[in-house]
């Protein structure tokens, strides 16, 4: 049984608290962690993250379910922020805990790869000249997600 925590929130997350919440569970030998943050770019001031309330949570649960089917995971944590975030601020936290490192690390990468293409979030960039721009989806993100569809043998 995989312990699941999924949250879509404006507030920042507390990495130490999220780690502590799963690390004490029996049987865990490794925890994979990914944090995505706002990357500095030319004249970028902030990112505003929008989502589809209701569907986002369902999509994240479906992605977590996929991961728990593929690897023996003790815990999955996905926290994704919404609203306006400035350069260097965290956007997303993914934790995956398992008995061994392979499952923990692979599941962490799987979760963020699938989140990119299967969870309804959109980013709008704001620039110092007052302009704004909706970020376009990357083909490489789609390819990263599809790479997980290849049978592993």
């Amino acid at each position: 049984m995989t312990r699941l925590k999924i949250s879509v929130q404006a507030a920042d997350f507390d990495l130490a608290a999220e780690y502590a919440a799963i690390a004490t569970q029996p049987g865990i030998g490794g925890i994979g962690c990914f944090i995505g943050q706002v990357r500095a770019g030319s004249d970028l001031i902030s990112l505003t993250l929008e989502h589809y309330p209701g569907m986002t949570e369902k999509a994240l649960h479906a992605i977590a379910h996929q991961a728990s089917q593929r690897w023996p995971l003790h815990a999955i944590t996905i926290i994704h922020r919404i609203g306006t975030l400035t350069i260097g601020q965290p956007i997303v936290l993914v934790l995956a805990a398992a008995a061994h490192r392979h499952a923990a690390l692979s599941a962490t990468q799987f979760l963020i790869d699938w989140l990119k293409t299967d969870a309804p979030f959109w980013k709008q960039e704001r620039f110092s000249d007052g302009g704004s721009h909706w970020v376009e989806a990357r083909q490489s993100d789609q390819q990263a997600r599809q790479a997980w569809d290849i049978p592993l043998g």
């Binding site: 994704h80 969870a119 909706w134 993100d141």
Partner: peptide, 23 residues
């Protein structure tokens, strides 16, 4: 997620959006 051939009926909630850019 739906495709052009996905059936729709009264009462449905349909959402239209650009490709996703979260994470």
């Amino acid at each position: 997620f739906a495709r052009p051939e996905t059936p729709i009926a009264p009462g449905d909630e349909i959402a239209i959006f650009p490709p996703l850019t979260g994470g």
